[in-house]
Design a protein around this nucleic acid. Structure first.
Length: 350
DNA sequence: CAGATTTGACCTTC
DNA sequence: GAAGGTCAAATCTG
């Protein structure tokens, strides 16, 4: 019992740790003349710490693991992408398997909402290409193998495996391997760009910079929305609703500062872990799924929509009343999407 | 026609 | 030898 709880919490703890790390990086690259920014960072860090505390995390274990993962990653990533070349000799192929073993690896369980009308799969900000599928012994459903679309071009070695759960077909185990080294700052072709509807000229008319800002906000919105997903136990739900309520003012302001380290790429990397994409999870499925969390804008109706619509909903992020019918009942507090919410109010953290 | 998916074959690991 | 993971040719799709 306790063990399974640990298993559930581990990814969350890793995420929080990574979040802290990123905030620290942001701090380093924040203009020293921005006391407001510094204050906000303090508060975000405080929230992360509180969250970790709530998880009864003593800090050593997860941090060590997260760090190990990072280091392992960097080792793996430095290697040249030769493995993508066609197998020319045996040593090349063996390298691939060696690399596979040393790559950081983590698993996420994601519950999805089924819907018959969903037009397409939800993206996680990265584009994946399916390169294989395998029937797994003892598993009802085949396992799908995906790798980064930019593997050939940029040598990005990130891969993931999507395995549908036997017990609950709405649950997918997503195993990620390696981190993205590709510069998919905005792989927005699908995920983060505004829906390319003919009548929606918002993006087309906006200057590039403004679009970037909006996209950043979308990412953060998505980030905090996604983080709720994993909060399958109610204790944490409360936690996330406060901890991850990044005010949009902050996101805009900070990302606009154009500092490289807390680039959108790293942000993307940070939240990527949480966003499991379901690009055709299994070939045998005719239904498309989208993670429930995407629909965590507080509503209650059985929500069937395209990914474009999802993006729209996320970016709109106002006061819709849709929500999944599944047991994951993340009703977001109104304040979550209230951009004017006094995030820096002292009472907020008390 | 380019890029994505499918699927059988092949490779490594255990 | 079985199982998991990857490759790559064939096929599909927009």
């Amino acid at each position: 019992m306790e063990i399974s709880k640990d298993i559930k919490q581990k990814p969350l703890i890793n995420e929080l740790t990574q979040g802290k790390e990123l905030v620290n990086q942001l701090r380093l690259h924040l203009s020293p003349t921005s006391p407001t920014g510094e204050l906000l960072i303090e508060k975000v860090l405080s929230s992360f710490n509180k969250a970790l505390l709530m998880l009864n995390w003593n800090g050593s274990e997860a941090e060590a693991e997260a760090e190990a993962g990072t280091k392992r990653t960097s080792v793996a990533m430095i290697e040249s992408p030769q493995s993508m070349s066609p197998r020319s000799d045996d040593s090349d192929l063996r390298d691939v398997y060696k690399k596979r073993k040393t790559m950081p690896r983590w698993t996420e369980q994601v519950r999805v909402c089924s819907g018959t009308g969903i037009e397409g799969p939800l993206e996680d900000g990265y584009s994946w290409r399916k390169y294989g599928q395998k029937d797994i012994l003892g598993a009802k459903y085949p396992r799908g193998y995906y790798r980064c679309t930019h593997r050939n071009v940029q040598g990005c070695l990130a891969t993931k495996q999507v395995q549908r759960s036997d017990e609950d077909p709405l649950v997918f185990d997503v195993t990620y391997r390696g981190k993205h080294t590709c510069s998919q700052v905005f792989p927005l072709k699908h995920a983060l760009s505004a829906p390319q509807k003919p009548d929606q000229t918002k993006n087309q008319l906006q200057p590039l910079e403004q679009r970037k800002i909006n996209q950043s906000e979308e990412i953060l919105q998505k980030f905090r929305t996604e983080l709720k997903v994993k909060t399958e136990n109610q204790d944490i739900r409360e936690l996330t609703s406060s901890v991850f309520s990044f005010p949009s003012t902050m996101s805009t302001e900070h990302i606009k500062s154009d500092n490289d380290i807390f680039s959108l790429a790293s942000l993307n990397n940070a939240y990527m872990v949480n966003l499991s994409s379901f690009t055709s999870p299994t070939t045998s499925e005719s239904n498309y799924y989208s993670p429930c969390q995407i629909n965590s804008t507080g509503g209650r109706s059985n929500f069937q929509t395209s990914e474009s619509d999802l993006t729209e909903i996320i970016s709109a992020a106002t006061s819709t009343t849709n929500s999944p019918v599944f047991d994951l009942d993340f009703t977001l507090d109104q304040l979550d999407f209230e951009s004017n919410f006094p995030f820096d109010s002292p009472s907020f953290f008390n």
